[in-house]
């Protein structure tokens, strides 16, 4: 097994799927000649040509719209939204249309498309390069929403997303792209969408998260281990559909829960996870379900100290864990 970065894993997943299936193609801003703003598609145009690696105008509604039409005709498009912050013009195509095609046509048509979105902060990106809009999509039936945290998960889940018969919004945390490295098998593999993963087994508190925050939770868990508290870190990996059983099973074991996400607090994924636990594992709780999240402010601030203030980090998560542990 080789150690790879998340960006390499993403690139490999697309490369392998394009090799495997001639219906797979990529479109987006700068994905061709420049290899993508994060170089996720570097080398693909040379391998597959400009008919399968398509540079588009700066128009997200048409990127998603053309991908939607092609998918309904049997192609398997990967639409890259350069930054998740730019996805709003494409929301009608994704939520208003793609999510409803199978339902609205009684299964006659379906949309096997992937929308790839680099998202998240902690990169000094300011208001328009840092947002976490996954909750808007996770709210929508008909979509699958994936937020991997490691190279292994990113590759296996992106391949699954490309092969999926229905629309998948695939959020890649841009801070993890080059920061997070991990082993990726040489042989081919695909991971199931909708299955969470215990990244660290523990018995005292369940810490539930996804994306970059999983790594911060793992760091915080190590801090708590030194204080005698054994934290289980559950990586949701997919935020729609949520792996309810994995959530409930862990909570039944520990009775205490901290949910962590970078996205704003109100109406974030943490609220949904907390509601599931309250409804289905209430009898097992020994402490209030608690969240550490980004604050309810309109966007990621540009000022570095303010960005640091916005972002959850291992220290803030450890403080949250201590609070839950001491209840």
């Amino acid at each position: 097994m080789a150690v790879k970065s998340v960006i390499e894993a993403v690139r490999e997943a697309m490369f392998e799927e394009m090799k495997r299936d001639p219906n797979v193609f990529i479109m987006g801003e700068d994905v061709g000649k420049r290899g993508g703003v994060f170089l996720a598609t570097r080398g693909l145009i040379e391998e597959f040509g400009e008919e399968r690696v398509i540079d588009t105008p700066l128009a997200e509604s048409s990127i998603a719209g053309i991908a939607l039409g092609a998918a309904m005709q049997g192609r398997r498009p990967i639409a890259e939204i350069q930054f998740a912050d730019f996805i709003w013009p494409a929301v009608n195509q994704i939520i208003g249309e793609a999510a409803r095609v199978r339902y609205g046509t009684k299964g006659v048509l379906h949309v096997p498309m992937v929308v790839r979105c680099p998202y998240g902060g902690g990169v000094r990106g300011g208001l328009f390069h840092s947002q976490s809009p996954e909750a808007y999509f996770a709210h929508t039936p008909g979509l699958k929403v994936v937020c991997p945290s490691t190279p292994y998960d990113a590759k296996g889940l992106l391949k699954a997303a490309i092969r999926d018969e229905d629309p998948v919004v695939f959020f890649e945390h841009k801070r993890t792209y080059r920061l997070v490295r991990g082993e990726v098998p040489d042989e081919e593999y695909v991971l199931p969408i909708g299955v969470a993963d215990i990244k660290r087994a523990g018995s005292d508190i369940t810490c539930i998260s996804y994306g970059l925050m999983v790594h911060y939770c793992l760091e915080a868990a190590e801090m708590l281990a030194k204080e005698g508290v054994n934290v289980e870190v559950l990586d949701l990996r997919t935020v729609r559909p949520l792996d309810k059983e994995a959530i409930l099973e862990s909570v039944r074991k520990t009775s205490r829960v901290l949910i962590v996400h970078e996205d704003n607090r109100t109406g974030g994924l943490g609220a949904e996870v907390a509601a599931i636990i309250a409804e289905e594992a209430f009898g097992h709780l020994d402490a209030p379900i608690t969240r550490v999240t980004g604050p309810d402010v309109p966007a990621m601030p540009f000022s570095p100290p303010l960005e640091d203030f916005f972002m959850p980090n291992p220290e803030k998560i450890a403080a949250g864990l201590r609070r839950v542990a001491s209840y």
């Binding site: 009775s255 709780l285 209030p288 608690t290 969240r291 550490v292 203030f309 403080a319 949250g320 609070r323």
Partner: peptide, 22 residues
């Protein structure tokens, strides 16, 4: 922005014999 404080439950625990479900 700090994690929501479990203040109301704390009050209850102080006030009388309130026990968690588990």
């Amino acid at each position: 922005q700090m994690p929501s404080s479990p203040a109301p439950a704390v009050e209850a625990a102080r006030g009388g014999q309130r026990y968690s479900p588990i």
